[in-house]
Design a protein around this nucleic acid. Structure first.
Length: 449
RNA sequence: GACCCUAUGGUCUAGCGGUUAGGACACCUCCCUUUCACGGAGGUAGCCCGGGUUCGAUUCCCGGUAGGGUCGCCA
């Protein structure tokens, strides 16, 4: 029988990076085994549940490229779904829960207490066979010994998470539950419930958690905890996927950068690590740079345009060829698209501000005549292209008896405002003779007297 | 408080009784170079502690310590 796994997020309004990894591991296992991935929305808490919140989840998963075989197609709980084991929104499964409670009640395995319905929990320790951790024996804690029974349905009629989760896994035919280790202790409750229903529980695989850099639990407010951050800050989904794979799992063979398709081949549950991992933003950034650098020109351009537009840089009034040429000089230089407005902004506006620190170094009296020579040399150029510009700059440097760097730095600052940026020769060509001339003149005017 | 899980450089990890403990990120040095980035060559840094088992433990067992998790009419 092919495995059936599920990702069952609660629509809280954001998708936790750890949740994204749980989804990824479920997806990998399903794809590796040829099994089925079910997406189930645990929207039992009507108070904080909304279509927008579901959309965040769907968008996040789609962005990461994690497609599901069964589950919602839209964020609408009553909308279209694929798969024949639905509904896939818990808010639509009331009747299932009611029937299950009545069954337990009828067989004396549950009872009413102060308006709530409680489950008669076994007093014996329960062994949890876990594919990642091994056999875990979970006796009752001291508090549980006082009252081992637990609530299935609240006095307001709402079933609780542990109950609906088990009912859904059972009725959806889930064979492997791959989830965060924070659920490991609670699994005893789940196993007891499955047995009460007369079925064998699914196999479990509890994966380690992702912690903050300081070792604390990564929660909603922590930097980098929300997947949306990466989407908004110009990360590439392949970089995020790749990085997430490396947390708690290893492709071995000293591999770091590895396409998801190859991870699908190599991935399996028993090799998952048992200890938590701290989130290392720097390493994610490195991977991001790796993927960003080798982006196909068309995709780079597309994402760059999106990032600029998103940041309010209006490029639609500009000549498309100009924009294209400008962005092309940035390819291979930036790591995330969020850097682009600062990195390439000088292409798209006339008012450029000079980096103060760089200006005190480059805009010094002795550089003024040099920059004038550069201007004159550029004026004399018939073809204002990178090769010609380079030759002109070098010839000017020779004429002045200085290193070419002495001309390059003031020129770069004059036309871009920054000490760093794309290849100077190429960016000058893209800006064009007139803009360059204008900016150099303006810069000459801002030299100290 | 009880119970559970975990423990290789700062971080992610390879290792599954005998290794000069390997790789990657980060960091440092040098080279390349029009800046930055990239690339190349080096470098600093690690098996939590204590007992066992064994001819021999990073590796197996026990204890401690530390970190994390769970014990809700939250999910």
């Amino acid at each position: 029988m092919k495995p059936r796994v599920r990702f069952a997020p609660s629509p809280t309004g954001y998708l936790h990076i750890g949740g994204a990894r749980t989804a990824l591991f479920n997806w990998l296992y399903a794809r590796h085994t040829g099994g089925t991935l079910v997406l189930r929305i645990e929207d039992t808490d009507a108070a904080r549940n909304s279509q927008e919140a579901v959309d965040v989840i769907l968008k996040g998963l789609r962005w990461l490229g994690l497609d599901w075989d069964e589950g919602p197609l839209t964020a609408d709980a009553t909308g279209p779904c694929k798969g024949d084991r639905g509904p896939y929104f818990q808010s639509q499964r009331k009747s299932h829960y009611t029937a299950r409670v009545e069954d337990l009640l009828a067989r004396g395995l549950a009872y009413e207490h102060e308006g709530a319905i409680k489950f008669k929990m076994t007093r014996e320790p329960i062994t949890i066979p876990d594919l990642v951790v091994g056999d875990v024996v979970r006796p009752l804690t001291d508090r549980e010994q006082l009252d081992p029974d637990w609530v299935l349905v609240r006095s307001d009629g709402q079933p609780v998470f542990h109950f609906v989760n088990v009912v859904d896994d059972l009725e959806m035919g889930i064979t492997h539950v791959i989830r965060g280790e924070d659920h490991l202790s609670n699994t005893a409750k789940h196993i007891a419930l499955f047995r009460a229903f007369g079925v064998e529980p699914p196999r479990y695989a509890h994966i380690p958690l992702i912690l903050n850099g300081d070792g604390s639990k990564m929660s909603k407010r922590d930097k980098g905890a929300s997947l949306t951050t990466y989407l908004d800050e110009g990360f590439l989904p392949e970089a995020v996927d790749n990085y997430l794979c490396l947390l708690g799992w290893s492709p071995k063979d000293n591999l770091e950068k590895i396409p998801l398709s190859e991870v699908v081949e190599r991935f399996d549950l028993p090799q998952i690590l048992r200890h938590n991992a701290k989130f290392d933003f720097e390493k994610l950034l490195w991977l991001q740079g790796e993927y960003c650098r080798e982006l196909a020109p068309e995709r780079f351009h597309e994402l760059a345009v999106h990032a600029l537009t998103h940041e309010g840089v209006d490029i639609h009034a500009l000549d498309a060829n100009y924009v294209q040429a400008a962005l092309a000089t940035c390819r291979g230089k930036i790591k995330t698209f969020a850097e682009l407005p600062a990195y390439a902004g000088f292409y798209f506006r006339e008012d450029i501000a000079y980096d103060p620190e760089a200006a005190t170094k480059a805009f010094i009296p002795e550089n003024k005549p040099r920059l004038e020579k550069v201007r004159d040399a550029f004026d004399a150029l018939a073809a204002f292209d990178a090769a010609g510009i380079e030759a002109a700059l070098k010839a000017t440097a020779v004429g002045l008896g200085v290193k070419v760097g002495a001309l390059i730095h003031p020129t770069r600052l004059a036309v871009t405002g920054h000490p760093h940026g794309p290849s100077l020769y190429h960016l000058l060509e893209v800006l064009g003779k007139d803009r360059v001339r204008h900016r150099i003149e303006k810069a000459l005017g801002s030299f100290p007297a």
